[in-house]
Protein backbone atom coordinates (compact mmCIF):
# COMPACT_ATOMS: atom_id res chain seq x y z
CA UNK A 1 0.00 0.00 0.00
CA UNK A 2 2.54 2.50 1.09
CA UNK A 3 4.95 1.56 -1.66
CA UNK A 4 2.40 2.23 -4.42
CA UNK A 5 1.36 5.61 -3.05
CA UNK A 6 4.86 6.93 -2.52
CA UNK A 7 6.11 7.43 -6.09
CA UNK A 8 3.42 9.95 -7.25
CA UNK A 9 3.75 11.99 -4.05
CA UNK A 10 7.48 12.19 -4.43
CA UNK A 11 7.12 13.14 -8.08
CA UNK A 12 4.74 15.96 -7.22
CA UNK A 13 7.07 17.21 -4.54
CA UNK A 14 9.97 17.09 -6.93
CA UNK A 15 8.01 18.98 -9.58
CA UNK A 16 7.09 21.69 -7.08
CA UNK A 17 10.68 21.96 -6.06
CA UNK A 18 11.78 22.24 -9.66
CA UNK A 19 9.23 24.91 -10.36
CA UNK A 20 10.37 26.89 -7.35
CA UNK A 21 13.95 26.60 -8.50
CA UNK A 22 13.04 27.80 -11.99
CA UNK A 23 11.08 30.68 -10.52
CA UNK A 24 14.03 31.76 -8.41
CA UNK A 25 16.37 31.39 -11.33
CA UNK A 26 14.22 33.68 -13.41
CA UNK A 27 13.93 36.10 -10.54
CA UNK A 28 17.60 35.99 -9.65
CA UNK A 29 18.83 38.80 -11.95
CA UNK A 30 16.31 41.20 -10.47
CA UNK A 31 16.78 39.90 -6.93
CA UNK A 32 20.52 40.31 -7.28
CA UNK A 33 20.10 43.92 -8.39
CA UNK A 34 17.64 44.61 -5.57
CA UNK A 35 19.83 43.03 -2.92
CA UNK A 36 22.93 44.88 -4.06
CA UNK A 37 21.51 48.26 -5.03
CA UNK A 38 18.55 48.63 -2.66
CA UNK A 39 18.83 46.41 0.38
CA UNK A 40 22.60 46.60 0.45
CA UNK A 41 22.70 50.37 0.09
CA UNK A 42 19.99 50.93 2.71
CA UNK A 43 21.93 48.72 5.11
CA UNK A 44 25.12 50.63 4.34
CA UNK A 45 23.34 53.97 4.86
CA UNK A 46 22.03 52.71 8.19
CA UNK A 47 25.57 51.86 9.21
CA UNK A 48 26.83 55.25 7.96
CA UNK A 49 24.17 57.02 10.04
CA UNK A 50 25.97 55.83 13.18
CA UNK A 51 29.34 57.09 11.99
CA UNK A 52 31.17 60.25 11.09
CA UNK A 53 32.01 59.95 7.39
CA UNK A 54 33.23 62.43 4.76
CA UNK A 55 33.39 60.15 1.68
CA UNK A 56 37.18 59.95 1.68
CA UNK A 57 38.31 58.93 5.16
CA UNK A 58 37.04 55.69 6.66
CA UNK A 59 33.89 56.09 8.81
CA UNK A 60 34.39 56.40 12.57
CA UNK A 61 31.69 55.05 14.89
CA UNK A 62 29.88 57.77 16.84
CA UNK A 63 26.81 55.85 18.03
CA UNK A 64 23.64 57.89 18.23
CA UNK A 65 25.39 61.25 17.95
CA UNK A 66 24.04 62.02 14.48
CA UNK A 67 20.45 61.28 15.47
CA UNK A 68 20.87 63.36 18.61
CA UNK A 69 22.36 66.24 16.61
CA UNK A 70 19.60 66.13 14.00
CA UNK A 71 16.75 66.00 16.50
CA UNK A 72 18.22 68.54 18.92
CA UNK A 73 18.85 71.20 16.27
CA UNK A 74 16.06 73.68 16.88
CA UNK A 75 17.87 76.48 15.04
CA UNK A 76 16.33 78.36 12.11
CA UNK A 77 18.29 76.30 9.58
CA UNK A 78 18.10 72.95 11.36
CA UNK A 79 16.48 69.61 10.69
CA UNK A 80 13.44 70.30 12.88
CA UNK A 81 12.81 73.50 10.96
CA UNK A 82 12.81 71.52 7.74
CA UNK A 83 10.37 69.01 9.23
CA UNK A 84 8.00 71.80 10.25
CA UNK A 85 8.24 73.26 6.73
CA UNK A 86 7.52 69.94 5.09
CA UNK A 87 4.65 69.34 7.51
CA UNK A 88 2.93 72.51 6.23
CA UNK A 89 3.65 71.31 2.75
CA UNK A 90 2.11 67.86 3.22
CA UNK A 91 -1.06 69.05 4.92
CA UNK A 92 -1.62 71.61 2.17
CA UNK A 93 -0.51 69.79 -0.95
CA UNK A 94 -2.00 66.33 -0.33
CA UNK A 95 -5.65 67.38 0.22
CA UNK A 96 -5.56 69.92 -2.62
CA UNK A 97 -3.94 67.69 -5.19
CA UNK A 98 -6.24 64.78 -4.29
CA UNK A 99 -9.34 66.95 -4.54
CA UNK A 100 -8.23 68.56 -7.79
CA UNK A 101 -7.28 65.20 -9.27
CA UNK A 102 -10.72 63.81 -8.44
CA UNK A 103 -12.43 66.88 -9.84
CA UNK A 104 -10.50 66.73 -13.10
CA UNK A 105 -11.14 63.01 -13.41
CA UNK A 106 -14.88 63.43 -12.95
CA UNK A 107 -14.98 66.22 -15.50
CA UNK A 108 -13.01 64.17 -18.00
CA UNK A 109 -15.15 61.11 -17.34
CA UNK A 110 -18.29 62.87 -18.56
CA UNK A 111 -18.78 62.68 -22.31
CA UNK A 112 -17.59 66.11 -23.39
CA UNK A 113 -16.57 67.16 -26.87
CA UNK A 114 -12.83 66.62 -27.61
CA UNK A 115 -12.49 64.49 -24.49
CA UNK A 116 -9.21 62.95 -25.62
CA UNK A 117 -7.76 66.38 -26.32
CA UNK A 118 -8.53 67.61 -22.81
CA UNK A 119 -7.15 64.42 -21.28
CA UNK A 120 -3.88 64.98 -23.10
CA UNK A 121 -3.70 68.65 -22.22
CA UNK A 122 -4.49 68.09 -18.54
CA UNK A 123 -1.92 65.33 -18.32
CA UNK A 124 0.76 67.54 -19.88
CA UNK A 125 2.24 68.99 -16.68
CA UNK A 126 2.85 65.51 -15.29
CA UNK A 127 4.86 64.21 -18.20
CA UNK A 128 6.95 67.35 -18.43
CA UNK A 129 10.22 67.25 -16.51
CA UNK A 130 9.90 68.95 -13.13
CA UNK A 131 13.08 70.88 -13.92
CA UNK A 132 11.46 72.37 -17.01
CA UNK A 133 8.26 73.25 -15.14
CA UNK A 134 10.23 74.82 -12.32
CA UNK A 135 12.22 76.90 -14.79
CA UNK A 136 9.01 78.15 -16.40
CA UNK A 137 7.58 79.07 -13.02
CA UNK A 138 10.80 80.89 -12.24
CA UNK A 139 9.70 83.42 -14.84
CA UNK A 140 6.03 83.40 -13.94
CA UNK A 141 6.82 84.11 -10.30
CA UNK A 142 9.06 87.13 -10.97
CA UNK A 143 8.10 90.39 -9.33
CA UNK A 144 7.60 91.71 -12.85
CA UNK A 145 6.14 88.38 -14.02
CA UNK A 146 2.81 87.25 -15.43
CA UNK A 147 1.24 86.18 -12.13
CA UNK A 148 1.70 89.59 -10.57
CA UNK A 149 0.41 91.13 -13.80
CA UNK A 150 -2.76 89.05 -13.70
CA UNK A 151 -3.37 89.97 -10.05
CA UNK A 152 -2.71 93.61 -10.87
CA UNK A 153 -5.17 93.62 -13.77
CA UNK A 154 -7.81 91.77 -11.78
CA UNK A 155 -7.47 94.11 -8.82
CA UNK A 156 -7.63 97.21 -10.98
CA UNK A 157 -10.93 95.95 -12.45
CA UNK A 158 -12.37 96.41 -8.98
CA UNK A 159 -10.54 99.66 -8.43
CA UNK A 160 -8.12 98.10 -5.91
CA UNK A 161 -4.34 98.30 -5.81
CA UNK A 162 -2.19 95.15 -6.02
CA UNK A 163 1.29 95.33 -4.50
CA UNK A 164 3.61 93.16 -6.58
CA UNK A 165 4.92 90.20 -4.60
CA UNK A 166 8.36 88.73 -5.05
CA UNK A 167 6.93 85.22 -5.00
CA UNK A 168 10.18 83.33 -4.78
CA UNK A 169 11.77 85.61 -2.21
CA UNK A 170 9.09 86.45 0.32
CA UNK A 171 9.61 84.90 3.75
CA UNK A 172 6.45 86.35 5.32
CA UNK A 173 4.43 83.56 6.90
CA UNK A 174 0.73 83.04 6.27
CA UNK A 175 -0.23 83.49 9.93
CA UNK A 176 2.15 86.43 10.18
CA UNK A 177 0.37 88.17 7.29
CA UNK A 178 -2.97 87.54 8.99
CA UNK A 179 -1.57 88.88 12.25
CA UNK A 180 -0.21 91.93 10.42
CA UNK A 181 -3.64 92.61 8.97
CA UNK A 182 -4.96 92.92 12.52
CA UNK A 183 -2.05 95.10 13.56
CA UNK A 184 -0.10 92.36 15.33
CA UNK A 185 3.17 90.69 14.48
CA UNK A 186 4.99 87.43 15.05
CA UNK A 187 8.71 88.03 15.67
CA UNK A 188 11.34 86.19 13.66
CA UNK A 189 12.44 83.87 16.47
CA UNK A 190 8.85 82.59 16.68
CA UNK A 191 9.10 81.13 13.18
CA UNK A 192 7.18 78.07 14.27
CA UNK A 193 4.01 80.15 14.57
CA UNK A 194 4.46 82.11 11.38
CA UNK A 195 3.09 79.34 9.21
CA UNK A 196 4.21 78.58 5.65
CA UNK A 197 5.84 81.52 3.87
CA UNK A 198 4.54 83.14 0.71
CA UNK A 199 7.36 81.50 -1.23
CA UNK A 200 6.54 78.12 0.26
CA UNK A 201 2.88 78.54 -0.74
CA UNK A 202 4.02 79.43 -4.24
CA UNK A 203 6.03 76.21 -4.43
CA UNK A 204 3.06 74.26 -3.11
CA UNK A 205 0.88 75.67 -5.89
CA UNK A 206 3.52 74.69 -8.43
CA UNK A 207 3.67 71.17 -7.08
CA UNK A 208 -0.11 70.74 -7.01
CA UNK A 209 -0.14 71.86 -10.62
CA UNK A 210 2.37 69.21 -11.66
CA UNK A 211 1.24 66.20 -9.62
CA UNK A 212 -2.56 66.51 -9.67
CA UNK A 213 -2.77 65.27 -13.31
CA UNK A 214 -0.81 62.10 -12.48
CA UNK A 215 -3.37 61.20 -9.85
CA UNK A 216 -6.17 62.34 -12.17
CA UNK A 217 -5.24 59.47 -14.50
CA UNK A 218 -5.51 57.01 -11.63
CA UNK A 219 -8.91 58.34 -10.63
CA UNK A 220 -10.04 58.27 -14.25
CA UNK A 221 -9.13 54.60 -14.55
CA UNK A 222 -10.91 53.82 -11.29
CA UNK A 223 -14.01 55.77 -12.33
CA UNK A 224 -14.30 53.72 -15.47
CA UNK A 225 -14.21 50.58 -13.34
CA UNK A 226 -17.32 51.56 -11.38
CA UNK A 227 -20.12 49.34 -12.74
CA UNK A 228 -22.77 51.52 -14.49
CA UNK A 229 -25.43 49.17 -13.11
CA UNK A 230 -24.90 50.68 -9.67
CA UNK A 231 -25.83 54.14 -10.93
CA UNK A 232 -28.78 52.72 -12.86
CA UNK A 233 -30.10 50.95 -9.79
CA UNK A 234 -29.60 54.07 -7.70
CA UNK A 235 -31.44 56.31 -10.14
CA UNK A 236 -34.33 53.85 -10.24
CA UNK A 237 -34.42 54.12 -6.46
CA UNK A 238 -34.67 57.86 -6.91
CA UNK A 239 -31.16 58.87 -5.76
CA UNK A 240 -30.02 62.32 -6.88
CA UNK A 241 -26.70 62.87 -8.66
CA UNK A 242 -25.18 64.17 -5.45
CA UNK A 243 -26.40 61.16 -3.50
CA UNK A 244 -24.98 58.87 -6.18
CA UNK A 245 -21.62 60.61 -5.93
CA UNK A 246 -21.49 60.35 -2.15
CA UNK A 247 -22.87 56.84 -1.81
CA UNK A 248 -21.51 55.13 -4.92
CA UNK A 249 -18.60 57.00 -6.50
CA UNK A 250 -16.63 57.96 -3.40
CA UNK A 251 -16.90 54.55 -1.67
CA UNK A 252 -16.01 52.76 -4.89
CA UNK A 253 -12.95 55.00 -5.28
CA UNK A 254 -11.74 54.39 -1.75
CA UNK A 255 -8.90 51.95 -2.56
CA UNK A 256 -7.59 54.37 -5.20
CA UNK A 257 -7.96 57.29 -2.83
CA UNK A 258 -5.84 55.44 -0.29
CA UNK A 259 -3.19 54.83 -2.90
CA UNK A 260 -3.25 58.44 -4.06
CA UNK A 261 -3.10 59.89 -0.56
CA UNK A 262 -0.26 57.60 0.49
CA UNK A 263 1.73 58.18 -2.69
CA UNK A 264 1.03 61.92 -2.44
CA UNK A 265 2.18 62.01 1.17
CA UNK A 266 5.39 60.14 0.45
CA UNK A 267 6.11 62.35 -2.55
CA UNK A 268 5.39 65.53 -0.61
CA UNK A 269 7.62 64.54 2.29
CA UNK A 270 10.40 64.02 -0.21
CA UNK A 271 9.97 67.32 -2.07
CA UNK A 272 13.35 68.36 -3.42
CA UNK A 273 13.78 69.40 -7.05
CA UNK A 274 11.61 72.51 -7.00
CA UNK A 275 13.41 73.68 -3.87
CA UNK A 276 16.82 73.02 -5.39
CA UNK A 277 16.02 74.86 -8.61
CA UNK A 278 13.90 77.73 -7.35
CA UNK A 279 14.88 78.69 -3.81
CA UNK A 280 17.77 76.61 -2.39
CA UNK A 281 15.83 76.51 0.87
CA UNK A 282 15.49 80.29 1.13
CA UNK A 283 14.26 82.92 1.83
CA UNK A 284 15.28 82.73 5.49
CA UNK A 285 15.02 78.89 5.43
CA UNK A 286 11.26 78.98 4.93
CA UNK A 287 11.47 76.43 2.09
CA UNK A 288 14.16 74.27 3.61
CA UNK A 289 13.03 70.65 3.34
CA UNK A 290 14.49 67.49 4.92
CA UNK A 291 15.61 66.00 1.62
CA UNK A 292 17.25 69.25 0.54
CA UNK A 293 19.05 69.37 3.88
CA UNK A 294 20.13 65.73 3.50
CA UNK A 295 21.46 66.55 0.04
CA UNK A 296 23.39 69.62 1.18
CA UNK A 297 24.90 67.92 4.23
CA UNK A 298 25.82 64.80 2.24
CA UNK A 299 27.60 66.82 -0.42
CA UNK A 300 29.05 69.57 1.76
CA UNK A 301 27.00 72.33 0.15
CA UNK A 302 25.32 73.89 3.18
CA UNK A 303 25.34 77.66 2.67
CA UNK A 304 27.49 77.18 -0.45
CA UNK A 305 30.35 75.25 1.12
CA UNK A 306 30.65 73.11 4.23
CA UNK A 307 32.16 69.94 5.60
CA UNK A 308 30.69 66.74 4.11
CA UNK A 309 28.62 65.05 6.82
CA UNK A 310 27.39 61.81 5.29
CA UNK A 311 26.57 60.36 8.73
CA UNK A 312 24.34 63.25 9.75
CA UNK A 313 22.67 63.21 6.34
CA UNK A 314 21.97 59.48 6.61
CA UNK A 315 20.56 59.88 10.12
CA UNK A 316 18.21 62.61 8.89
CA UNK A 317 17.14 60.41 5.99
CA UNK A 318 16.25 57.58 8.36
CA UNK A 319 14.29 59.85 10.67
CA UNK A 320 12.35 61.07 7.64
CA UNK A 321 11.75 57.50 6.50
CA UNK A 322 10.33 56.59 9.91
CA UNK A 323 8.02 59.63 9.82
CA UNK A 324 6.79 58.74 6.34
CA UNK A 325 6.19 55.16 7.47
CA UNK A 326 4.12 56.32 10.43
CA UNK A 327 2.03 58.64 8.25
CA UNK A 328 1.42 55.95 5.63
CA UNK A 329 0.45 53.50 8.37
CA UNK A 330 -2.07 55.89 9.94
CA UNK A 331 -3.56 56.78 6.57
CA UNK A 332 -3.94 53.12 5.73
CA UNK A 333 -5.75 52.41 8.96
CA UNK A 334 -8.00 55.42 8.56
CA UNK A 335 -8.94 55.15 4.90
CA UNK A 336 -9.11 51.38 4.71
CA UNK A 337 -11.55 51.04 7.60
CA UNK A 338 -14.92 50.19 6.13
CA UNK A 339 -13.50 49.46 2.71
CA UNK A 340 -14.27 46.15 1.16
CA UNK A 341 -11.24 44.50 -0.31
CA UNK A 342 -11.69 43.59 -3.94
Amino acid sequence: MASTAAPPARRVKKRVRNETAVAYLFLSPYLLVTVVFTVGIVAFALYISFTSYNLFESPTWVGLDNYRKALADTGPSGFLRSLVNVFWYVITVVPFQTAIALMLAIVLNTPVRAQQFFRTVFYGPSVTSSVVIASIFLWLYLKTGVINYVFDQTFSLFGAQWTAIEWLNDPRGLFQIIANAFGGDIPSDQWLFRGPSVTWLALMALNIFTTAPTFMIMYLAALQDVPPTLYEAASIDGASKRQQFRSITLPMLRPVTLLIVVLGTIGSFQVFDQVKILTSGGPLNTTLTPVYLVYSEALGEVGGGSVIRMGLASAMAFVLAVIIFIFAFIQRRYIESGTEQY
Binding site: P171, P283, N285, V302, G303, G304, S306
Partner: peptide, 15 residues
Protein backbone atom coordinates in the same frame (compact mmCIF):
# COMPACT_ATOMS: atom_id res chain seq x y z
CA UNK B 1 35.99 74.19 5.95
CA UNK B 2 32.63 75.70 6.79
CA UNK B 3 33.22 79.05 5.05
CA UNK B 4 29.97 78.73 3.16
CA UNK B 5 27.96 78.48 6.36
CA UNK B 6 29.76 81.43 7.98
CA UNK B 7 29.21 83.64 4.94
CA UNK B 8 25.62 82.47 4.61
CA UNK B 9 24.97 83.55 8.21
CA UNK B 10 26.05 87.09 7.20
CA UNK B 11 23.78 87.12 4.14
CA UNK B 12 20.81 85.95 6.21
CA UNK B 13 21.47 88.60 8.87
CA UNK B 14 21.37 91.29 6.18
CA UNK B 15 18.20 89.74 4.78
Amino acid sequence: SNSGRVNDAVSKALE
